[in-house]
């Protein structure tokens, strides 16, 4: 019987203004950015920033719930590899992110439709 590591997963809701400090903390603790995921639920964006520790398999997710017009800062200054996730959120959901280190300007996937997974309004306007 092998040892099973199953730490409890942490999900914490935070304010948009606390994002950068939290990310900085996690980076200092030696966590790796595991994923960033966006969802458009009840006319709000839910952004999940997940961090994983490679040794303890601890999984920490920070959840931001923001209105669609709120602009959030990019974390690429702290974690450069986040750029693909952020570009994806921006393109598919229309999340407003400022200062991405390499901004593809909605040309990462080069889809024709604007923010297909985001607010339905954008679809009608097209």
């Amino acid at each position: 019987m092998a040892e099973v590591i199953h730490p409890e997963e942490i999900l914490e809701e935070i304010e948009a203004s606390a994002l950068l400090t939290k990310v900085m903390e996690k980076k200092k603790d030696g966590y790796r950015l595991s994923q960033i995921c966006a969802a458009y639920i009840d006319e709000k964006y839910e952004l999940s920033y997940s961090f994983a520790d490679d040794e303890t398999y601890q999984y920490v997710t920070y959840r931001l719930v923001i209105d669609t017009d709120v602009e959030i800062p990019s974390i690429t200054e702290i974690i450069p590899q986040a750029l693909f996730y952020e570009n994806e959120m921006k393109e598919l959901f229309g999340v407003k992110i400022k200062m991405i280190s390499l901004d593809y300007e909605n040309r990462l996937y080069r889809i024709r439709q604007e923010a297909p997974l985001g607010p339905k309004k954008a679809e009608k306007a097209e």
Binding site: A2, V4, I5, H6, Y57
Partner: peptide, 19 residues
């Protein structure tokens, strides 16, 4: 050198397997 393998989280039957 990153020592991580998600199978260690023990989904499916991996808890019964030694690796």
């Amino acid at each position: 050198g990153i020592n991580t393998d998600m199978r260690k989280l023990g989904y499916a039957a991996y808890p019964h397997i030694d690796f």
